[in-house]
């Protein structure tokens, strides 16, 4: 199974490398998670491991979920997430096994998935990096407007509506965002902390899903090869 856990974003700080360079880092508290279900190709049509994270008070949970977690001999969990694995690997896992940050011990790069901060209803300048109109030359109270959105023409040709997917004002943020191939800077097994270089989507205390990097970019592939 690729190393993967659920966790929470705690906050950011500064980390000094050996040569004195300082880098921005995000501290994540990942795990402990519990394997709550094994999905098998026979029963479910695909192979996956389901992990649960964080306690939920029983009276806040629902009977189906309490029963589900009880099967794995564990207390009710508030978050569940599936990790796809190869069917042949399923035997390696067992109900109720606890996973903590040590699964990332030998991992150099991780992907972090979180829910980005919501920005509310935003105009095109902030949302799509439009330039807006000019500051002068006769522009009247339309300095941040998108300008022309083209004539009425549907995807099929002319028509009563404008083309679908036209970038306009609207709700921005609060989307699921994956940040790929973040460097793992440090691991604190005592407190289940994972320190990664760079920024992670979402607010402090936000839920994040951390997994071993699926695919590295060219530079990091080279570095990983040189390091191993």
């Amino acid at each position: 199974m690729p190393a993967a856990l659920l966790g929470r974003k705690l906050g950011m700080t500064r980390y000094f490398l050996e040569d004195g360079e300082n880098i921005p880092v995000t501290v994540l508290q990942v795990g402990p998670c519990v394997i709550t279900q094994l999905k098998t190709p026979d029963a479910d049509g695909y192979a996956a491991v389901q992990i649960g994270f964080e306690e939920r008070r029983a009276h806040r949970s629902t009977q189906p979920l309490i029963g589900h977690d009880a099967k794995a001999q564990t207390t009710p969990k508030s978050e569940h997430r599936e990790i796809r694995v190869d069917a042949s690997e399923l035997d390696e896992f067992e109900f109720g096994t606890a996973l903590d940050v040590s699964v990332f011990e030998d991992v150099k790069y991780v992907d972090v998935v979180g829910q980005g901060k919501g920005k509310g209803f935003q105009g095109t300048m902030k949302r799509h990096n439009f330039r807006g109109l000019e500051a002068s030359h006769g522009v009247k109270r339309r300095h941040r407007s998108p300008g022309s959105i083209n004539g009425h023409a549907t995807n099929l040709g002319t028509g009563p509506k404008i083309k679908r997917g036209k970038r306009m004002s609207g709700h921005m943020g609060d989307k699921r965002i994956s940040v790929r191939s973040m460097d793992v800077v440090a691991i604190d097994k005592e407190n289940n902390l994972l320190v990664v270089k760079g920024t992670v989507p979402g607010p402090n205390t936000g839920l994040v899903f951390v997994r071993e990097a699926v695919r590295l970019n060219r530079r990091k592939t080279r570095l990983a090869k040189a390091g191993s």
Binding site: L10, M12, V27, L193
Partner: peptide, 12 residues
């Protein structure tokens, strides 16, 4: 949370 964040760099 804040103390945990600070604990990661306290030895530096």
């Amino acid at each position: 949370a804040q103390e945990l964040v600070e604990s990661t760099v306290s030895d530096q």
